[in-house]
Structures are given as structure tokens and as C-alpha cells.
């Protein structure tokens, strides 16, 4: 028997919205420590990895490892029926062919029950090695979303270059070129909370090219976290990570475009 509950069901709806345009369906691997999901986009250029910890749930019980094969668009149709402040419970029998989703309003005046048919998905998992990155940038997630959206109107490939002073996003296209630089916030800044700052940890300067349409897809997770962390290495996938307090994180990996 697997069951878990979130006070803020809305968070789970945002999680599914963050992956459903990149990956059609996937396996939620549930074990005693939490839920993980991994999936690649159809062109195998991007990988999304979701890791939810049991500590982030108000209730969590997993007697035996359970794999829930889910079509995200179908799940999203059911989650759409959930109230913004509803509590979400998910339940599945060990060998069941469906999973139940229960939404309950705060005052329990409204309770909704949905049963989603599960799929058999044969999906190989990719091993993501622990990596020492050349540069790690933490910045406001809304700022990153805006940069990717606005620059993609000018070009389809963004060059991200990082020095210890700043991170620069550059594009070029038919109409011309442009770049946007974010300076590292002064560490002394006392005003504003940390989530508004741009922090750069630099091993050594690095520059890489990425397809903007994937980055724009990743920023669908902006609602999950006020900050986003970008990790870059030379000729390595970019890691775009949104951390959700004690619930866990969603990580997007994007293969670079390399000059042959």
C-alpha cells in the first residue's frame, strides 16, 4: 500500500505542470524515502528529474516500493478539479492498475475522489554522475524566466558566460544581437531578502550555448520556487534546479550546443 498527503495540493499540480510539456508520461518511483521521477523529452536533448522527500508530506506511507506509470496530461485533467487550497491525498495498492487522488477543501465541506488508470511504462533510468561544476549561479527564478522569454524573440540559441563578477546571456539572430548581464549582488547588501540576489560561485570562467526553447520549457517550474540555480561545466549539460523548501527539487538537464 502506498499513500501520501500534501496540505498544499496546489504544489503537486504545479509540479505536474512543470513536467507535462517536456515529458508525456513517466514512472513515479515510490519508496520508503520519497517519490522520484525521471524523463527525457522526445528529442532526447533534455532530462527532467523530480525528487520529492517523504519529509515534505504531511502523511507518507510506502510499505513496498511502488511504480506508478502516469500520463501527465491525464493526471493534469483531474488535478484541474482540485481547489487552490485543497489538501491532496494519493493512494495506490501495491499491484494496482489505478491510483486514487482525493482533494479535500480546508473545511472538509467538499471532497473529490478521482481514480487515474495507470500505464505500464518501460523506461530506462539514466545515471546522472555527481559533477564538479565550473560555475553555479543562484538568481531570482522570475528574472531567469523573463530573460529566456525575451531573448528567445531575438535568437534561438543563448550563450551563457560566467565570470566572478557577472553572468551574461547573449543571443544573435536575423534582426541583430543582444546580451543581458546580471552582476553578482554585493554580499554586503542588507536590503531585500536573499531570494532577490544574484550569487555566483566560480571555479573558473565558463561559456556554453543552449537552445532557448528548452530553457523556456524549464521555466514552467518558476511558480515552484523564488530562486533558480544554474550549474555549468565545459561541454556538459546545464543543470537548472528549482528547490521546493523541504519537499525536494526539480532538476532539468540540457545538453549543450557544441561548436564542431
Amino acid at each position: 500500500m502506498f499513500e501520501c498527503a500534501l496540505i498544499q495540493g496546489e504544489l503537486f499540480r504545479k509540479l505536474i505542470a512543470s513536467v507535462q510539456d517536456l515529458v508525456q508520461d513517466g514512472n513515479f518511483m515510490c519508496d520508503a524515502n520519497g517519490i522520484s521521477l525521471q524523463g527525457m523529452d522526445s528529442s532526447h536533448v533534455a532530462l527532467v528529474a523530480l525528487a520529492l522527500k517523504k519529509e515534505g508530506f504531511v502523511e507518507y506511507r510506502c510499505d513496498r516500493d511502488v511504480t506508478l506509470g502516469i500520463n501527465f496530461a491525464n493526471l493534469a485533467k483531474m488535478l484541474k478539479c482540485m481547489g487552490a487550497k485543497d489538501r491532496l491525498s494519493i493512494r495506490a495498492q501495491d499491484e494496482g492498475d489505478s491510483a486514487s487522488f482525493v482533494f479535500e477543501s480546508e473545511d472538509s465541506s467538499r471532497v473529490s475522489n478521482f481514480e487515474l488508470k495507470l500505464m505500464q511504462i518501460d523506461q530506462e533510468q539514466l545515471g546522472v554522475p555527481e559533477t564538479q561544476y565550473k560555475a553555479v549561479i543562484r538568481m531570482p527564478s522570475s528574472e531567469f524566466q523573463r530573460i529566456c522569454k525575451d531573448l528567445s524573440a531575438i535568437g534561438d540559441t543563448v550563450s551563457i558566460s560566467v565570470t566572478k563578477e557577472a553572468v551574461k546571456f547573449s543571443v544573435g539572430g536575423d534582426i541583430g544581437s543582444g546580451d543581458m548581464s546580471l552582476r553578482q549582488s554585493e554580499s554586503g547588501d542588507v536590503d531585500g531578502d536573499d531570494s532577490e540576489k544574484v550569487m555566483i560561485e566560480l571555479e573558473e570562467p565558463v561559456q556554453q550555448n543552449f537552445a532557448l526553447r528548452y530553457l523556456n520549457n524549464f521555466t514552467k517550474a518558476t511558480a515552484l520556487s523564488k530562486t533558480v540555480t544554474l550549474s555549468l561545466g565545459t561541454d556538459m549539460p546545464l543543470v537548472t534546479e528549482y528547490k521546493m523548501d523541504n519537499l525536494g527539487s526539480i532538476r532539468y538537464y540540457l545538453a549543450p550546443k557544441i561548436d564542431e
Partner: peptide
């Protein structure tokens, strides 16, 4: 010539 790599180029299947 700029080529777009696939993610499997970097990560191995388990």
C-alpha cells in the same frame, strides 16, 4: 558548425 548533442552523450543508462 554548431551541433546539438543528445543528453545520452553525457549520462549513461543505469
Amino acid at each position: 558548425r554548431i551541433i546539438q548533442n543528445e543528453i545520452e552523450t553525457f549520462f549513461q543508462f543505469k
